[in-house]
Write a protein that binds this DNA or RNA. Structure first.
Length: 547
RNA sequence: GCCUCCGUAGCUCAGUGGAUAGAGCAGUGGCCUCCGGAGCCAUGUGCGCAGGUUCGAUUCCUGCCGGGGGUACCA
């Protein structure tokens, strides 16, 4: 479709020039209705409006001036109010199968990114507890967007930003300390706003096993050992969960480094030099109003502690300093108010903030049947990502988190996910792949193999053509997903593709007594398997040979 | 109050400045002599409300209504 678009654009431009018609910003689209052709353009409609002529007559004139090879489009016609519809020739469609087989695992890759460096930051959860389902959505979205960018020709770095020095971490450490004391039989008052999770007890127990009661006298001011133990265990756990989902980060960036290496100071310095930061009431303020924001913001509190904005700015500054051409930040909806400040900060520091793409995803609401599950890390009233994967498996987890647009709240019904797990789209799609593999095994037994592109001309059935048309959309789909950062489109595309295959499978017998036809259909199966597998690999689900 | 996301079929959700708005699930009725029935086919209802821009609006703009999330010298 990609190449076809530029092909048509060229031809249309030529035609317009031949007719001395002005250029116009028309579109090429894929009609929803089969009888409206494979590609459609509104060029005549728009021109007619501009030069006050009858759109249908104009469309007819344009068609007469189009020098289209009939090996590409066998038919062109004026339709409706003045659309021009193009119909692929069977020859062209048959050739698509050949192209896919030639390109194999590379089919769908593009060079849109031109090997530029892209960074995708996601998850970025502080190590205070296991990853929850909310993190899961972000993890899968982030990883998949990174995959898309790779397919689109970027060099991608996956990065996880964390802070192991804040107040939350101190509370975490102290929670462990108190549990440890409890386990030694001491009666302690465990505050309600401390971390209640069972994992805190586990960490406390491992400390008890290691140090016996030698830490018992440590007070609130001596929690490092507890905090470090907690961080270490929890982070390991987080990484294990991520790796189970097939996610590996290239960089774990610790906020603390920004203090140690002077980045924080540098940002303050630059802002002060530019008179974009000033002291007031004992605090340091960032002049965000200079960048169109509503009010100035505190970046260093009167206590001397920075607010989150300062390290965020410094962190983003390192992204530019590290030479990324495209910076993708993925946040939950709760952070929606914070990024304008950071973008303004980046601008203030003299960087091109348009290189930053901030993606906000809405929350996951968990249901147990009809009942909403309230979640809070602190209260340990949550279902972890690991538990979810235990229940429904990795493939279902990934697919479900991607299925919906990230602008949309995701209602995840655990009961449904468990009880109907074999009625869900993941299996439908994987089944198509497994089915193809099964056909291939049968073909091998019968000694049938795809040998020559010459047989492809036997692909003539409308079900075959529908399948091929789906297959040829894949590269454009990948580019669109990468460009619009909308991974859910691919899950939809793949379901459509699987449906086209199942339909073909039902209507067209692959392994027939006609050897050449069998070979041709086998080739179509192979092409479909290739595209399914390529798509699955982007989404991060398995392409099973059998189920 | 202000900012932001959402409002489309019974349910969960896609989608588009255009020609007849889709899928899955749920319901009903069909399809196995033969490549995997985890499949295929048929069947119904819908763009929250009111204006505006446009040749054309479900899509873009404004207002309203309803729901989620923000709005700190918390992150």
């Amino acid at each position: 479709m990609q190449k076809i678009e530029s092909y048509l654009q060229n031809k249309i431009q030529q035609a317009l020039e031949n007719l001395s018609l002005p250029a116009v910003d028309y579109t090429l689209s894929t009609p929803k209705i089969e009888t409206h052709g494979d590609v459609s353009t509104n060029v005549a409609l728009l021109l007619a409006n501009q030069i006050k002529q009858n759109p249908r007559q104009l469309a007819q004139k344009i068609i007469e001036n189009l020098e289209i090879e009939d090996e590409v489009f066998s038919k062109m016609e004026v339709a409706g109010p003045g659309f021009i519809n193009f119909f692929y020739s069977s020859r062209y469609l048959q050739k698509v199968v050949r192209t896919i087989l030639q390109q194999g695992r590379r089919f769908g890759r593009a060079d849109m990114g031109k090997k530029q460096k892209a960074q995708v930051e996601f998850v970025s959860a502080n190590p205070t507890g296991p990853l929850t389902i909310g993190h899961g959505r972000q993890a899968v979205i982030g990883d998949t967007i990174a995959n898309f960018l790779e397919w689109a020709g970027y060099k991608v770095t996956r990065e996880y930003y964390f802070n192991n020095a804040g107040r939350q971490m101190r509370v975490l450490g102290d929670s462990v300390r108190l549990r440890y004391k409890q386990q030694l039989g001491e009666a302690v008052d465990f505050p309600e706003d401390y971390y209640q999770g069972e994992y805190i007890n586990d960490i406390a127990k491992s400390l008890k096993d290691k140090y016996s009661n030698s830490l018992q006298q440590r007070g609130e001011q001596e929690i490092e050992i507890f905090q470090e133990a907690a961080e270490q265990v929890i982070f390991q756990d987080i990484k294990k969960t991520l790796s189970r989902m097939g996610i590996e980060f290239d960089v774990y960036y610790n906020e603390k480094d920004l203090y140690d290496n002077g980045e924080i100071e540098r940002v303050i310095q630059i802002l002060k030099e530019k008179d974009l930061a000033y002291e007031k009431e004992g605090a340091l303020w960032f002049r965000s109003t200079s960048f169109g924001l509503e009010q100035d913001r505190v970046i260093v509190k009167s206590s001397g502690e920075p607010t989150y904005r300062l390290p965020d700015m410094a962190y983003h500054r390192t992204k530019f300093e590290r030479g990324f051409d495209l910076i993708v930040d993925i946040f939950g909806a709760d952070h929606i108010a914070t990024y304008p400040d950071v973008l303004a900060g980046i601008k203030a520091l003299g960087y091109d903030e348009s290189k930053i793409k901030v993606l906000i995803h809405q929350f996951v609401t968990l249901y147990q049947g009809k009942e909403k599950v309230k979640m809070s890390t602190r209260r340990a009233n949550f279902i972890t990502l690991d538990e979810l994967m235990d229940e429904v498996g990795v493939d279902v987890t990934r697919w479900f988190f991607l299925m919906r647009s990230m602008d949309s709240h995701l209602n995840f019904d655990l009961v449904l996910a468990k009880t109907q797990s074999d009625e869900n789209p993941v299996y439908y799609n994987q089944y198509a792949h497994a089915r193809i593999c099964s056909i291939l095994r049968n073909a091998a037994e019968r000694g049938i193999t795809y040998e020559s592109p010459a047989t492809l001309k036997l692909l003539q059935d409308s079900n075959e053509f529908m399948l091929i048309k789906k297959l040829m959309d894949f590269p454009a789909m990948v580019e669109k997903c990468a460009r619009d950062f909308s991974p859910h489109l691919l899950t939809q595309y793949l379901s459509d593709l699987s449906a086209a295959f199942h339909k073909f499978y039902t209507e067209c017998w692959v392994l027939t007594t006609d050897k050449e036809l069998s070979q041709a259909r086998l080739a179509l199966c192979l092409a479909t398997k290739t595209v399914l597998a390529n798509g699955f690999s982007i989404i991060g689900v398995a392409a099973p040979e059998s189920m």
